[in-house]
Design a protein around this nucleic acid. Structure first.
Lengths: 333, 333
DNA sequence: GCTGGCACTCGGTATCATCGAGTGCCAGCC
DNA sequence: GGCTGGCACTCGATGATACCGAGTGCCAGC
């Protein structure tokens, strides 16, 4: 696609621009290691690279800046699998060795870790509760005809739903219904809730119907819990306050974030660059994502959001390592 | 403290500055309703107001800007209890009439509501779990010597702790321990957990000891859950991207936010202006807070964080109304 | 004690020249 | 043919200069 020299020149432009955030001129590129030709030759090639859409000139007679396509080529072809530097690797290890407590807290802390590693904003999508095995189910009365369904999953997550009963139920009836639910659900996933058979007793069945209805009406009360951290980093990444505002607005919409990440993963990508995200306000942002596996199955995903001129090798390495360690940690339980 | 005319002039400066974000000159003030003197007189008074610390001149021969002390006087003496405008009041009512589902989601949505009403960032501190009555307690085995303590509170909150057992326990032993806990806790608060007496059986007692230890080591795994919303609004409030970054950094530190709010309330204040917050990076921010009552008892608090030149009457009204409605909604259950 | 008048300040804006990094192009060299 | 040095050109950034006007402090007078 690109001959070797053009590729080297593109690499030099991208790396320099990531470093300085200033348009890169032919002189600098000619002096880069890996480029052994004169600035005039570089100029010719840069003009071609611009024609082919890899580079862009902010103004006539300024240096060149990579386009999304340029970054894409850099990420796909010019960047090998990178390793985390020593201190970062140590930081990751220390984090997963010492982290403790509830899953939710760990996931939130993981956004901090990722953000510290990369200096960009970080997101962590929690494991889908549907995938985990049920360990126990309880029904607790809160008011005469309001109960709370509490389901404990094997990974330590607790799911709950408010259940509005058609008629008041006694503690005993609730306990019977819970026992029936437990008997049918333990060992399978929450998805099996829809197919639980009636138990026989009318009072208990009334409760079961209400439980099913409560579940069906909010199957995803946590539509896919997502944790966001390091948003303040976005303010360092851009100097236009309006860009910052737009990006923050996106990050506040959990639904958008989740579907964005899912979409990127569904396309088989690790990185979405600028307009590839499909989200207008993120035109100047790139997203690096990775799923994490629990018990060998994809459970959730993590990601890093930064400016398009992000340090891709570093971000990719950080996301890869953290997703792997997080998966391992959650598999251990 | 300030004679009537000076107060009127200060009011005019504050209101104008809140509106335009530009230093206010004597000419504009003289034309304001409520000020019936010439600009020369206004100038004299403004010089005095500056000497006394209510106003500040960004540069010689520019207009005046209120100081923290100026805002403080405005808030304390010049601003009566304001009412929410019609559409906002309607928005609040509609929100609390239609909101449903889990407490957590409601509190998160409340930050959206407050942020929409005021156009500033909003925080909601959840009710302290210690205060709520226990409705049921369960112990679920996750691994041979790991169990999960799940406690359902009367307000629908579910508290959980991972419990590391000294020795493996059977399902029956866990159930016995849970029954013992339930018997001792139901009707009182979680604080009573520390004083639960042994049950007699050694296997069960082993579990009880582990439960107490788990609770004691993370009494506040949710140190005081806090929800933050509308952070993107901070990017509209300031034009220095660095100020935005600093404020966001603060908002990301839940502990800081919680203690800040608590501190303000402890001082008996509704509003903390600029340096009154005691947090350096918030020198250009003001915080408007209010507690909300559940069953007549202070349960949690809500707040709005904006620039010092915020619309105080509006923010105070919004916070007052929302805290009241939220408390009522949570009291109903 | 308030006001109109006046000299003064000084930040913001516009104009203009300069500078220099960077470009495109071309003739010449290997 | 392809690379290179050279050259004229572009144009954003920087800085000097002037100007404008909103705003001030002060003072004499009503």
């Amino acid at each position: 696609m690109l001959d070797e020299r053009k590729a080297s020149i593109l690499r030099a432009v991208v790396e320099e621009y990531i470093h300085t955030a200033q348009p890169v001129g032919s002189g600098h590129v000619a002096q880069s290691p890996g480029v052994e030709v004169s600035s005039a030759t570089v100029r010719n090639d840069m003009a071609l690279l611009e024609q082919e859409g890899y580079l862009r000139q902010p103004h006539t007679s300024a240096g060149r800046v990579p386009t999304d396509k340029g970054y894409r080529f850099f990420v796909d072809e010019l960047t090998g699998p990178a390793r985390l530097d020593k201190s970062s690797a140590h930081q990751v290890r220390a984090f997963f060795d010492t982290t403790h407590g509830a899953l939710e807290q760990m996931l939130l802390d993981t956004t901090r870790l990722l953000s510290d590693l990369t200096h960009y904003a970080a997101v962590v999508v929690a494991p889908a509760p549907e995938a985990a095995e049920v360990r126990s189910a309880h029904l607790v009365g809160l008011a005469p005809s309001v109960a709370l369904l509490v389901v404990v999953l094997a990974n330590g997550v607790v799911e709950k739903r408010t259940v509005e009963l058609a008629a008041p139920a006694t503690e005993v009836e609730l306990a019977d219904a819970a026992a029936h639910l437990s008997a049918n659900l333990i060992g399978s996933t929450l998805a099996a809730l829809g197919t639980v058979a009636p138990s026989g007793g009318p009072a208990v069945d009334q409760v079961l119907v209400a439980v099913k209805r409560a579940w069906a009406s909010h199957p995803e009360a946590d539509p896919e819990q997502v944790y966001v951290g390091g948003t303040a980093r976005m303010a360092s990444a851009f100097d236009a306050v309006d860009t910052v505002r737009q990006v923050l607005t996106i990050l506040e919409q959990q639904l958008v974030v989740v579907s964005l990440i899912r979409d990127v993963l569904d396309r088989g990508l690790q990185v979405a660059i600028g307009s590839e995200t499909g989200v207008g306000p993120l035109a100047d942002c790139s997203l690096v994502v990775a799923p994490y596996l629990v018990d060998g199955e994809p459970a959730g995903s993590i990601g890093v959001l930064g400016p398009t001129r992000m340090n891709y090798p570093q971000a990719l390495a950080a996301v890869a390592v953290v997703s792997q360690r997080l998966g391992r940690r959650l598999t251990e339980g």
